[in-house]
């Protein structure tokens, strides 16, 4: 799977970091999303999808 994030849309809710810390992080100055792993392994796919669903700003896109 392929993951992209929209830093302009992100509101730093941190839901993605809680759900999948292997894939998402927050930058120090304002907590905006940083994509650590753009192509996560299949074992993380359900967590990544959950992160995308929980994101209140719809800033996470997942493509298979």
């Amino acid at each position: 799977m392929k993951v992209t994030v929209d830093q302009d849309a992100c509101i730093a809710s941190g839901q993605c970091v809680l759900t999948t810390p292997e894939v998402f992080d927050q930058r120090d100055e304002d907590g905006i999303v940083v994509l650590v792993t753009p192509d996560p392994p299949e074992s993380l796919s359900s967590q990544v999808r959950e992160a995308a669903v929980l994101c209140p700003a719809r800033a996470i896109q997942v493509v298979d």
Binding site: D8, G14, V17, G31, I32
Partner: peptide, 15 residues
């Protein structure tokens, strides 16, 4: 909204 809100998002980041 984003400009102002982002000035106070850092203290609420997960870490």
């Amino acid at each position: 909204h984003a400009r102002l809100r982002r000035m106070v998002t850092a203290p609420f980041m997960i870490k």
